[in-house]
Structures are given as C-alpha cells and as structure tokens.
Design a protein around this nucleic acid. Structure first.
Length: 146
DNA sequence: AATGTGATTGTTTAG
DNA sequence: CTAAACAATCACATT
C-alpha cells in the first residue's frame, strides 16, 4: 500500500544512517549447518551487475576496488529504464522460481523445523516454462516525502 | 596463509 | 507490514 512505500523510503534512510555496514557482506565462516540451504537468488541488480562488472573491467582494467564498480553499477542501474531492467528481472524471476523449488527440498529436509508439524505437501512442479510475455508500458513514480 | 572488508540494490525471510 | 540481513565480486590489509 501507499503507506508501505512511504515507510520503505524511510527505511532506506535508516539503513543509510547505519554507517556500520559490517553486517553486510558477511562471508560464511564455517560449516554449513544446512548444506541444502539454498542461497538467495540474485536480484535483477546483481544479474545486471555481473555483466556490468565484466564490461566495466574491460573499460577500466586498472580499477581494482569492488566498491567502485558497485557504485558505478548502482548509478547506472538507476539510470536504466524498466524496459532495460526487464531482461534482468526476467532472469532473476527465473532464479527465484528455482529457488522456491530448492526451498521445498530444504524444508523437507528440515522436517522438524517447525514444531507443529505435519505440514507436508507434495508439490511436483513440472511446469517451468511459461512463455507469456506482455508488455505494458506504464510507470509512475511518485515519491512524497514529508 | 587466510579471511575480512568495502559498496551497490534487490530480494528473501521471519516476526 | 516492517525491518534487517544477505546475495557476488576482488584486491588489499591485517592477524
């Protein structure tokens, strides 16, 4: 809802306020407790970034800091239109579908993850390909800041 | 030697 | 709904 978006805007500011970004970029230290634990699907931004980094390095082979590419990527990303982001989002969406599938297996393995229990649903999702594309050119951006 | 850090935004998850 | 952490990357610095 509108309130949601509004708050989200606030949340962004909150995160920005948090200088300690140490919480981010955490690397797995050791032992995966859950080997089946599926990693989160890369967002459209990451998909774009992957290609972007490659290209960026080609034009800037001297650049070493990842942060630079990140910043540049972020800026460029915002510069892209929804149409350009579309293919990346599509890929991300696909990854998400797979992620869900992995989660199913993961949840199953967890088995007693939830106390109560028996929640079992057999889901065989065989259909994966749904090629249906509709294009709707409609975008509105309205940010109201107090 | 090995691992953490730094930065980007989006998505995911749990509460 | 909300907030927060986590997804990749790569060279450098620190222990």
């Amino acid at each position: 809802m509108f309130l949601y978006f509004r708050k989200v805007g606030k949340r962004k500011a909150a995160i920005k306020a948090d200088k300690s970004s140490k919480r981010q970029a955490k690397k797995e230290k050791k032992a995966e407790k859950d080997p089946n634990k599926p990693k989160r699907p890369p967002s459209a931004f990451f998909v774009f970034l992957e290609e972007f980094r490659k290209q960026y390095k080609q034009e800037h082979p001297n650049v070493k800091a990842v942060s630079v590419v990140g910043k540049a990527g972020g800026e460029k990303w915002k510069s892209l239109s929804d149409a350009e982001k579309a293919p990346y989002e599509a890929k991300a969406a696909k990854r998400k579908s797979e992620y869900e599938k992995q989660m199913s297996a993961y949840n199953k393995k967890q088995e007693s993850a939830t106390d109560d229990g028996d929640e079992e649903s057999d889901r065989s999702k065989s259909e994966v390909n749904n090629e249906d594309e509709e294009e709707s050119g409609e975008e509105e951006e309205d940010e109201d800041e107090d």
